[in-house]
Simulated assay, not measured.
Amino acid sequence: MAINLNGVGSQPTLNKSDRIAREESAVARSSSSEVDSKKTLAEDTVQISSVAQSLQASAGADEKSSVDMDKVEQIKQALAAGEYKIDTEKLASRMMAMDSLFA
């Protein structure tokens, strides 16, 4: 038993040249929308509130003051020379203390 499906569906049947023309116009539209979106992106701006700026400035100051760069350099040199010793018991106890903060 044969079923005739001609004319079923909302899309009309297109020949090859019509399909190519539609594809080319779709590509042209997408290319122009990409250009428009790039133009829009170039115009976007971001403003940081004064509170956020002051928090950022104070965080940067805290980081700079809390790092002992002399000690960092000593540790780097000891690592490079293979002389840096790690106290594993001290490390383990500090890891356990930190872990208890999150338990």
Rank of each mutant, 00 (worst) to 15 (best):
A81H: 08
D18T: 12
S66L: 00
S31L: 04
L101V: 11
M98V: 07
V67S: 06
I48R: 08
D87K: 03
I20G: 08
S65A: 15
A92F: 00
A52M: 08
D44L: 06
V51N: 08
I75L: 13
K76I: 10
D44S: 08
I48Q: 12
A92M: 01
S100E: 13
K90E: 10
L55E: 15
S10A: 12
A21H: 09
D68T: 02
V67L: 03
G9S: 01
A92I: 06
S32Y: 10
Q53I: 09
S49W: 00
K90R: 12
L41W: 03
D36P: 01
Q74W: 03
M98T: 05
S37M: 04
E43C: 03
T88Y: 05
S33H: 10
G82P: 03
A80S: 08
N4A: 02
T88A: 09
A59T: 07
Q77V: 11
S50G: 13
G60M: 11
S66D: 11
R19S: 13
E83V: 04
A61H: 09
A103F: 04
V67F: 04
I48S: 13
A97M: 05
M95D: 15
N6T: 01
E89I: 07
A52C: 04
K16G: 04
I20L: 06
L41V: 00
L41R: 13
L55F: 15
V67T: 08
K38H: 04
L5V: 02
A81E: 11
N15H: 14
K76C: 07
A78M: 03
E24H: 07
E43K: 06
A52H: 10
V46P: 06
I20A: 14
D36C: 01
T13P: 03
D70V: 01
A78I: 00
A103K: 13
S30K: 07
F102K: 15
F102G: 10
S33P: 00
Q74I: 00
Y84K: 02
N6R: 08
M98S: 12
D36Q: 09
S30F: 01
S30T: 09
L55T: 07
A92P: 11
A81M: 04
A2K: 12
M96R: 14
I48L: 14
D44H: 10
V67I: 06
A26H: 05
A80C: 06
A57W: 09
A28I: 01
K90L: 03
R94K: 14
R19H: 11
